[in-house]
């Protein structure tokens, strides 16, 4: 595979073809915040926190680094007033759901996000999809999935599968940026309703 040279925050970075900008940055020790990214999983691009600006021969735009493929002579900026403004708002929007999540609090400090900007609707889940994707892609069990759409989107366990698979696994719990609260809660509830039946 051919080597690609690009510039991230003014630094020359070497990468391989097929890599994403995020991977290239991480290898070069440049940190970009992420929430829904996980190296074992297919890129997902849902939290949009890893947003960066690219400049391809004068043509500028915002892209998410966890998905955008590296290219020769690409110029990447990972921090700017606009990028930080977007990240701050994303964190604020998520804090409305999970105000006590440590990951979010750290991000809030970094970007000056106001924990109380939006009215609280604590549902804990921030829909990063890590549990759903880990269960499907790594464990291939499909015990937990998404239901509904739009503002009503939720995660939901399939009781029949969960009662067989989950107690011995629980590998998704530590992945949850909101301390597994929701995953644990939904799981127990699903199991209970299943035993009741």
């Amino acid at each position: 595979m051919s080597e690609i040279l690009l510039k991230i925050d003014g630094k020359e970075v070497k990468a391989r073809e097929g890599m994403t900008v995020l991977e290239a940055a991480q290898r070069a020790g440049i940190s970009i915040p992420t929430l829904c990214h996980h190296e074992k999983l297919e890129p997902y691009g849902a939290c949009r926190l890893c947003i960066v600006e690219i400049d391809m021969r004068g043509w500028k735009k915002l892209v998410v680094s966890c998905l955008y493929p590296v290219a020769q002579d690409l110029v990447v900026t990972t921090k700017s007033e606009k990028i930080n403004r977007i990240r701050k708002m994303i964190v604020e929007l998520l804090l409305a759901h999970a105000p006590d999540a440590f990951d979010l609090q750290d991000l809030a400090r970094e970007y000056g996000a106001d924990r109380d900007r939006f009215e609280k609707e604590s549902s804990f889940c921030i829909h990063c999809g890590l549990c759903v994707r880990y269960c499907a892609e790594v464990k291939k069990k499909h015990a937990v999935g998404f239901v509904n759409r739009g503002a009503n989107r939720e995660i939901s366990f399939i009781p029949e599968v969960a009662s067989k698979e989950c107690w011995n696994c629980k590998e998704c719990f530590p992945l949850c940026p909101t301390e597994a609260l929701q995953a644990a809660y939904v799981l127990t509830e699903a199991l209970m309703s299943h035993t009741r039946q």
Partner: peptide, 19 residues
Amino acid sequence: FLTDESCGKCVPCREGIRQ
């Protein structure tokens, strides 16, 4: 209309337009 019709995957849309 859009809050209901958004797929709900990404934050700026699901949470942003809801707000």
